[in-house]
Design a binder for these strands. Structure first.
Length: 206
DNA sequence: ACCCAGGTGGCCC
DNA sequence: GGGCCACATGGG
């Protein structure tokens, strides 16, 4: 067993299955409604703590528009009102624009998440990365957690842990992603759970 | 009154 | 390719 598989074993023993804390993101199986909530959450959580994201998601739910179509219908027509619902997530005007572009792409290209999920990882990744507001981390979070595609997410916590454990000499997004994927079986469940456990571990260390 | 949180785009060199 | 800045809220 290599360092990476060992890390998973260690964190799993310490925290148990991450669905205890990442209730929706690590849940299996997921409903399509939950997958849509993850996609929205992936954008809202950019540079923002999860508590503020949850408030924003609650507001969207209360308004009955915590869905891709709900965002598509509301983020442009009722722009100010929509942005106000996600105010607590910070950078809210910018994120409202990002969410609209993403929802529009999904609705117009695939119609729904069920159809989108059938597509190949590489194709989806290229398409999502071309949208405004979706960089590598947000794109890969959507692919991994909302669409069950086997791609490992690199974020500040993963980078921090990789530095602490001296897992690499190069901490760029691409090289860390290659390193994790090259040392783990290609399995979306493992990728979801290990990444979540890394975040849980690093958040606790503060 | 600071500092931080599950980034990204734009601009510069 | 990297460095810097704007984007904004709520909690400690």
């Amino acid at each position: 067993m290599n360092k990476f598989q060992n890390l998973y074993q260690k964190l799993y023993k310490k925290y148990g299955h991450p669905s205890g804390q990442w209730k929706i993101w690590c849940k299996r199986p997921k409903t399509y409604k939950e997958r849509e909530e993850i996609i929205i959450g992936a954008v809202l959580t950019q540079r923002t703590n999860w508590n503020n994201v949850e408030r924003a998601i609650s507001c969207l739910k209360e308004a009955g528009i915590c869905s891709i179509y709900g965002v598509f219908e509301n983020a442009r027509k009722r722009k100010e009102k929509f942005a106000d619902l996600i105010r607590s997530s910070g950078f809210y005007k910018q994120k409202a624009g990002y969410l609209f572009g993403l929802a529009k792409f999904i609705v117009e290209t695939y119609g729904d998440i069920k159809e989108m999920k059938k597509q190949k990882l590489e194709k989806l990744r290229k398409e999502l990365l071309s949208l405004k507001g979706l960089g590598k981390e947000t794109t890969d979070s959507i692919l991994l957690y909302a669409l069950d595609k086997p791609i490992f997410v690199i974020d500040e916590y993963t980078r921090r842990l990789a530095k602490r454990y001296r897992l690499s000499e190069n901490f760029s997004y691409d090289s860390l992603q290659k390193l994790f994927q090259g040392n783990l079986p290609k399995n979306y469940r493992l990728y979801q759970d290990l990444h979540a456990l890394i975040v849980i571990e690093e958040q606790k260390r503060q």
